[in-house]
Amino acid sequence: MTVVFTVTLAILAAAGLLTMLRLLRGPTTLDRITALDVLVVLIVCGGAVYVAINQDGSNIPLVAAVALIGFVGSATAARLVERGERHR
C-alpha cells in the first residue's frame, strides 16, 4: 500500500508544480486567485492522503479547516480584485 500512497503524493506534487506555474505566470490577479484555490484543494488532498496513511482520524479537523479557509480566502480576494481590476 505504501507504493500507492507515494505515487498518489507524487502525482499531487506534480499537480502542485503545474499550479505554481500558473500562479507565477498568470497575467491577471484572478488567475492567481484561481491557482491559489487549486493549491488549497491540493493541500486538502494531501492531508486526506496523510490521514489515509496513518488510518487515524485525529487530524481530520486539519483537512476540514484548510478547506474552509481556502474558500473564504478565495472569495474575499476575488471580491477585492473586482473593484481594483478595472483601471488596468
Binding site: 498518489t8 499537480a15 500558473r22 484561481t34 487549486v38
Partner: peptide, 13 residues
C-alpha cells in the same frame, strides 16, 4: 483522484 487533480492543474495551465 490524484490523476483528476493533475488533469485539473494541467487544464489550469
Amino acid at each position: 483522484g490524484a490523476l483528476s487533480c493533475l488533469l485539473g492543474a494541467l487544464g489550469l495551465v
